[in-house]
């Protein structure tokens, strides 16, 4: 049964996933076009292609990092569509009156949503690492900081969007809730930092733990809410 559910959820999200794939490809397209333009300009001036100001691998790495940042935003739409998407087009009722355990439904939706995010992340990360290695770039001690920041932000956005998707019938509203959660958490900590005096920067200290707390909490609450929901 789970195979059929996975197929159904994949097909249900196919349009969204294709749209997100196109969205995440934009940085690469921009980089390729920019590189081609630079190459054309330089060759027009009589210069060699080796004289490129920015190497290809560096440009690809920047594109992949940009794509990863965009994936953080896109994860809100993937999670937001998980339950609310079927409720919005009323097809949730079709699966609800079939003898499908809700647990299986949740597992399938989680696998498709998390799997899609992971697949996109894998592609971007592979490009980033390959191009990073080719360019002989140096891994600094603080290189991981922004990566951790993006990762916890993605967890927060995904978890909150997932929770609101389980509650509401609007995928847009669920996605917006996920995105708003970043502003709420980040904004609240920044506000606290502004209003209090002390050596400790709250945003730096608490942003990641709070993102993980609300993100994972949202995900678990969403699962529990869906499993215990009375009416579809």
């Amino acid at each position: 049964m789970i195979k059929t559910l996975l197929w159904k959820d994949y097909r249900q999200n196919l349009r969204l996933l294709v749209a997100i794939a196109i969205f995440l490809a934009i940085p690469y397209v921009v980089m390729v076009v920019a590189a081609a333009a630079v190459r054309l300009r330089d060759s027009g001036l009589g210069g060699s292609t080796d004289d490129l100001h920015v190497p290809w691998n560096m440009m690809l790495m920047q594109a992949s990092l940009c794509s990863i940042v965009m994936l953080v935003v896109a994860s809100a739409f993937i999670a937001g569509n998980a339950f609310a998407g079927e409720r919005a087009d009323r097809s949730a009722e079709f699966t609800a009156y079939l003898p499908i355990p809700r647990g299986s439904t949740v597992v399938s939706k989680a696998l498709v949503a998390i799997g899609a995010c992971m697949l996109f992340l894998l592609v971007d990360t592979c490009i980033a690492f390959i191009t990073h290695g080719l360019g002989g770039l140096i891994w600094h001690d603080n290189t991981a900081d922004p990566i951790i920041g993006f990762a916890v932000t993605a967890v927060l956005i995904f978890g909150v969007a997932w929770l609101f998707s389980a509650i509401s019938s609007s995928p847009g509203m669920a996605a917006a809730s996920g995105l708003m959660s970043v502003i709420l958490v980040g904004g609240s900590l920044t506000l606290i930092d502004f209003t209090r005096s002390g050596p400790e920067i709250m945003l730096q200290r608490w942003y990641a733990p709070l993102c993980l707390l609300f993100g994972l909490g949202g995900f678990i609450c969403g699962v529990l809410y869906y499993l215990r929901r009375g009416d579809i």
Partner: peptide
């Protein structure tokens, strides 16, 4: 069960 509003996945 055959519902009043057909709710099958249209795709």
């Amino acid at each position: 069960y055959v519902p009043e509003q057909q709710t099958m996945h249209r795709w």
